[in-house]
Amino acid sequence: MPKRFVFVVRQPPYSGARNAEMLDQILAAAAFDLAVDVLFLDDGVWHLQSGQSPQNAGLRRFAPMLQTLELYDVREIAVEAESLEERALAAEKLILPVRCLARIDIPDWIAGHEIAVSCG
């Protein structure tokens, strides 16, 4: 059976080159037609906030890049429901369709993978 990857994103956007580099690593696995899931936790969920316009801060937009997750058949884009709630974010207003997982179900969900990678 092919190995299932999960990438866990906990850092907010605009964390320097890290954002693009974490996406490169996720997509590298996806490019091999592997089963790849991404989990946004804690401040990582801020990546999914709609309406980000960092141009006036002199920063590059990252949200469009994240949309390539869908293009390359990343299997599941999951977020933790509590992480959204704590930040007053609504799942249906995010920039990508996501699967919401309750905090209590996170350990079992992660345990269903063969390779876990922290992306900061």
């Binding site: 190995k3 990857f5 490169d24 690593q25 590298a28 696995a29 490019a31 091999f32 592997l34 390779i115």
Partner: peptide, 9 residues
Amino acid sequence: LGQWVDACL
């Protein structure tokens, strides 16, 4: 990164 994926497998 391709080498990393390869090695992971």
